[in-house]
């Protein structure tokens, strides 16, 4: 049986075969598009991208001074005031957040302030908004920690070992510590041991005999005096 191979074909047949494959691919692309369009038509979204020129004019972006993009009159100062949803007052935008906190009573001390305001509601109606806010600021104790700060004592005064002590104090303590060091120098060393009658092979700390004193090193002065 003969082998089927591309190499046996001449150039003309090879070209014809390539053309056939290309035409198949183009056919596939056309069919795919037809199916896609038909589906879009039946589903109802094929004509969605069609726009009418007259309707487009209605929705054009407006670029004129004094008007926003929708063509409506733009008031420059109107948006700088907000209406409180709780008390329905018109408040400057810069003061709206602090007012709302105190008005709704959601902050730390604001709930107490709000309750106080409810109790004394009749008196505050006569006052202006700014006066009320000033009053609230006085009552607001979030930032008043001056008294507490004064009441606290410095830890460094109590603790002599603190690294932040004054120089004079440091000097005094250094003289005192010198005398202690001198006394300790003449005292017998704590960890000195004498030879005991143990076997040589035994390792470990040698115990001090009961009657014997622990030997100590002689200082220079003592050595010369002897």
């Amino acid at each position: 049986m003969e082998e089927l191979s591309v190499s046996s074909l001449d150039n003309s047949k090879l070209e014809a075969m390539a053309q056939d494959i290309l035409s198949d691919l183009v056919e596939d692309a056309c069919l795919g598009l037809c199916f896609e369009v038909h589906r879009a038509v039946k589903q109802g979204y094929f004509f969605l991208d069609d726009t009418d020129q007259e309707s487009m004019r209605d929705f054009e972006i407006v670029d004129q001074p004094g008007l926003d993009v929708f063509g409506q009159v733009y008031n420059q100062w109107k948006n700088k005031e907000c209406v409180c949803p709780n008390c329905n007052r018109s408040i400057a935008a810069s003061r709206f957040a602090p007012h709302l906190e105190k008005c709704l009573g959601m902050g730390r001390n604001s709930s107490r302030i709000a309750n106080r305001r409810i109790v004394t509601g009749n008196n505050t109606n006569n006052k202006s908004e700014s006066d009320q806010e000033d009053n609230d600021d006085v009552n607001d104790n979030d930032w008043s920690y001056g008294a507490e700060k004064k009441a606290k004592k410095r830890k460094s005064d109590k603790n002599p070992n603190s690294p932040r002590r004054s120089k004079s104090f440091k000097h005094k303590s250094s003289t005192a510590s010198k005398t202690n060091q001198d006394n300790e120098a003449h005292a017998p060393p704590k960890d000195s041991y004498i030879a005991s009658s143990r076997p040589v092979g035994m390792m470990g700390p040698r115990r001090r005999l009961e009657n014997q004193e622990s030997p100590r090193m002689l200082m220079k002065d003592e050595a010369f005096s002897q």
């Binding site: 035409s23 183009v26 056919e27 692309a29 056309c30 069919l31 598009l33 037809c34 199916f35 038909h38």
Partner: peptide
């Protein structure tokens, strides 16, 4: 679909 294929495919090629 047949209408679309018949009308469009030759032009597409």
């Amino acid at each position: 679909v047949e209408d679309l294929v018949v009308e469009v495919t030759p032009k597409g090629r």
